[in-house]
Each structure stands twice: as structure tokens, then as C-alpha cells.
Simulated scan of single mutants.
Amino acid sequence: MNKAVFLDRDGVINEVLNHRVKFVNHPNQLFLLEGVPEAIKAFNDTGFKVFVVTNQGGIGLGFMKEVMLGKVHKKLQAEIEKVGGVIDEIAYCPHKPEAGCLCRKPEAKMITDLAKKYQVSLKDSVMVGDREPDIYAGKKAGVHTVFIGKKKDNRAKADVVFPSLLAAAPWIIEESWNK
């Protein structure tokens, strides 16, 4: 069985809701957070599959077309590949926030579907997110959870809190459940 790191996209991998970009609806709005490519490469180098699981309600709301999302994700993968890293697959929920679908986080379907497809051991894997729905999805899937942000914002009670993916990478790689 494989082990995996499931990553939320906006706020974990790339900038969002800041002075430079509000939402990522076009490839030129994608700015990776510091150290993200290196963290993903470190996960690859230590045997983790790396997946992105992201809610993209902007599609359902009409702010973006799936073709454009594909271009955003192609740019994301190219940026990661520049340092030799690989994202094994990107899964997304295109439905509106209140659609009640099973794939939208806090539901765990994106995680569990990827785990089944890639023969991932959920108990040996981790979900990294910056919002409560990410952490709840991870808990429902049975993976370890990492909250990116400040401890006071960890209302979903993730297993650990780090300020960035790069800061979380050593814990994810070295934690005993990974061995």
C-alpha cells in the first residue's frame, strides 16, 4: 500500500485572498507559496504519493469554466516540476458550495476515491488544509490532519498546526506512522 499527502490548493499551495490575488480563476493569478515546490519534491523523494483535493465552487457559480481550471492546474504542475516534484493527480469538486454533493469537502469522497485508485493506506496518509472543511474531510477519510495557519484558527482540531506546508513537511515525513 502507498502512503499519500492530500493537499488543499488555495491557501496551502498557492496565494489566495491577499493583496495580489483574491481567487485563482486564471493561470496568471496562480502564485505558489514559498517552499511549496520543495515540500512536494521532499514528499515525492520519501515515497509519498501527492494529490491535490480542492473545492472549486467558482465553476458551479459561473466564475470560471473547467477548461480554465485545467489551465490553472497545468501551470501548477509545471511549477512543481521545475524543482523535480510531481503531483500525482488533482481532484476537484466543481459544484456550488450548497449543492450537497458528496465530493465537496468537508465530505471525504475525493480523498477516498484517490486512495482506492492508487492503493493508498489512509491510516498512513495525511490531509493538509487551511480551513475547517479540509480537516473534517481528512478526519472522515481516516487520515492524519495538518492545519496550515495559526493555532487559534484550528477550530476543527487538526492533529498538528504549522504556519506553512514547508514547515509541516519535516513532521509529515518523520512522523512514526509514516514508517
Rank of each mutant, 00 (worst) to 15 (best):
M1Y: 13
V5Q: 04
F6C: 02
D8A: 10
V12M: 05
V12T: 12
I13Q: 11
N14Q: 11
E15V: 01
L17Y: 12
R20W: 05
K22S: 10
F23A: 03
F23D: 08
N28F: 02
L30C: 11
E34G: 07
G35H: 10
V36P: 02
P37L: 00
E38V: 12
A39P: 07
T46W: 07
G47P: 12
F51V: 10
V53P: 07
G60N: 01
G60Q: 07
L61Q: 14
G62N: 06
F63Q: 01
M64F: 05
V72Y: 01
K75G: 02
I80N: 06
G85K: 01
I90M: 00
Y92P: 07
Y92C: 06
P94V: 08
K96G: 01
M110V: 11
L114P: 11
A115P: 05
Y118V: 04
Y118G: 03
D124A: 15
S125C: 11
S125E: 05
V128H: 08
V128M: 10
G129W: 05
G129R: 01
G129V: 05
E132C: 09
E132K: 14
P133C: 08
D134C: 08
D134P: 11
K139M: 13
H144I: 02
I148L: 00
G149E: 00
K151D: 15
K152Q: 14
K157T: 12
S164W: 00
L165D: 06
L165W: 03
A169K: 03
I173Y: 09
K179D: 13
